[in-house]
Write a protein that binds this DNA or RNA. Structure first.
Lengths: 332, 332
DNA sequence: GTGAAAGCGCTAACAG
DNA sequence: CTGTTAGCGCTTTCAC
């Protein structure tokens, strides 16, 4: 059996409340007794039972992270950031993968919300109403989605989508295709809009090729339609789709970037490893995770209420010389 | 405030103990009262406080998953499997990423172990002694590492490493290089041994090129040494290393597989997307995660004690026709 | 079959 | 500054 606070108290010859104070509010205790208690605690390897503490303080020291799919490299990056920041704050993280299933997501969130102080919902697929319902009885921070005034960490799609367009225009492109993600995806909508605005401003044509699954196979499926548009460049919903495009274009003997330029979005590790390396728009994924935790913690402390953080994104122009290839997420 | 069991009991006009029984041991309660209680519970959206329950039952309904690095695609796959199986058993999962830091890992495990029923340690970096110490006061299941008799889920490196060697031999290779992972890695050691045994059996030469970081950059670093060995084929510690090799070989103008054949290990999603696609040894990562959970749960129920599961691995021969490209981890 | 009472490990008043 | 008391929400004897 693990040591309890009573054991510590007994060993130190004080009451349990004094032992408790010595460990959690050191200032309110005589230095001598404090030392005794702390010595006793370490000597028997005492670790507080967080569940018991949570029962009385109402804080469990735990947050939940819900995301659509760990197999999509975007999400482990966010998770890594969340995890790191939470640990620094001595907070534990429950992880839940919903498998891109909106219904499962709602159920999971429901269940999780009872066991945590707050929830980070990354790219949630559930409806606005469901989301508002959850937010009504749990502290929630959204990542990569905006719903009403709910606290959120998002990426600057406005500026972020202007960058690849400006880049392509500078290279002489005038007809640019856009391969969208799922029709229900908030970020796909934002990305499409951002590109359209930038294209209009810069006086070039943006051709929307349609909605595709946000995966490698989605890119394979989109490739021929992209070619048929006659565009000289294409921006893909994300890097996975861009890599799928690359594969199919290669099969068809279409040179990249010679015949067609391809730009991805997200900057997953894989995009640096493709050949040709993929020019992409970097989303600071780990940072988003870290910020989401900070936002959530400050919300729990009652510091802020309707906060929203928008993260700067950055065009990564990749070429064979390896310029600009530094990884966001550490060495991979 | 969330509804408590007392609220349910009051609403149903019974005592809290009856309410408790009606919800957890339905057989021991009159059908009529049971129905009343259950109706009351759902009507106010009652969900039991797991922390309070855990305080008394000694079971928290939570397990911990500790892994070295979410940025390495191997681990999110395992995590996905763990997560899915745990959810099916209505068990929550704490996630901890140690950043490949053995010291941090030991501390994390220590802290986590107090809050969970059991721990899944995936490719743990800590020492045998530390591991035994942890296992002494927590139920632990190892994944991808073997220490004494500790319960573990591992991959069949014996047979797994014979497959790529046999494949390469069949293609006519007689000098095969092996690019090992970190010197401290259990799986690197196992893989190296397995290859050596197979090479000896098949009468070909295995040249150990040394130890490299288990990343893309490690492969880049190893490439020139591999070339210098004069081997006609190389097996890399993992796919990331293999992809790094591919990149550097391409830079040097060495054709793959024309001049040099490259085989990876793990079958991460990325390996299907490389060009040329990477022949690799598939490790059933999600399955390992699922089995680890099952093993842990049965251990917690006192069913088994020194169990060990060995998973079959499978050579994935990749070529430009797309044969054998089905993904393990769902569509990516 | 059901209720009363005790207590899991801890913290938060409240006295002293 | 420290000890006593109460109780978080739940399960589990133990009577009835």
């Amino acid at each position: 059996m693990a040591a309890t606070l009573r054991d510590v108290a007994r060993l130190a010859g004080v009451s349990t409340s004094t032992a408790s104070r010595a460990l959690t509010l050191p200032e309110r205790v005589n230095a001598a007794t404090r030392a005794k208690v702390q010595a006793a605690a370490t000597s028997i390897g005492y670790a507080p039972n967080k569940a018991a503490r949570g029962l009385i303080t109402g804080r469990t020291g735990t947050i939940g992270l819900v995301l659509p799919d760990l197999a999509n490299p975007f999400f482990p990056s966010v998770a890594k950031g969340v995890q790191a920041r939470a640990r620094a704050a001595d907070v534990a993280v429950f992880l839940a993968d919903t498998d891109e299933d909106a219904a499962a997501e709602a159920g999971l969130v429901q269940a999780l919300s009872k066991q945590v102080d707050g929830l980070i919902l990354c790219s949630p697929r559930m409806s606005v109403d469901e989301l508002n319902a959850v937010a009504a009885d749990t502290t929630v921070v959204l990542v990569n989605r905006l719903v009403g005034d709910l606290p959120a960490v998002i990426f600057d799609h406005q500026d972020g989508m202007r960058q690849p367009i400006a880049h392509l225009v500078a290279l002489g492109h005038r007809r640019i295709a856009w391969v969208g993600g799922p029709a229900t995806s908030w970020s796909s909508e934002q990305r499409g809009k951002g590109l359209a605005v930038a294209a209009a401003e810069l006086g070039v044509e943006l051709i929307e090729v349609g909605h595709f699954p946000p995966h490698y196979d989605g890119g394979m499926a989109a490739a021929d339609q992209v070619v048929a548009t006659g565009a000289s460049a294409v921006v893909a919903y994300n890097d996975l789709v861009a890599l799928g495009l690359l594969a199919r274009l290669h099969t068809r003997g279409i040179a990249v970037p010679g015949d067609l330029s391809v730009v991805g979005i997200d900057d997953i590790a894989m995009s640096r490893m493709a050949r040709p390396a993929l020019t992409t728009v970097r989303m600071p994924k780990q940072q988003a995770g870290r910020l989401a935790v900070e936002l959530l913690l400050s919300l729990l402390d009652g510091v802020e209420s309707g906060a929203r953080k928008t993260l700067t994104v950055e065009l990564m122009v990749r070429d064979s010389t390896g310029v600009n290839q530094r990884p966001e997420d550490g060495t991979v």
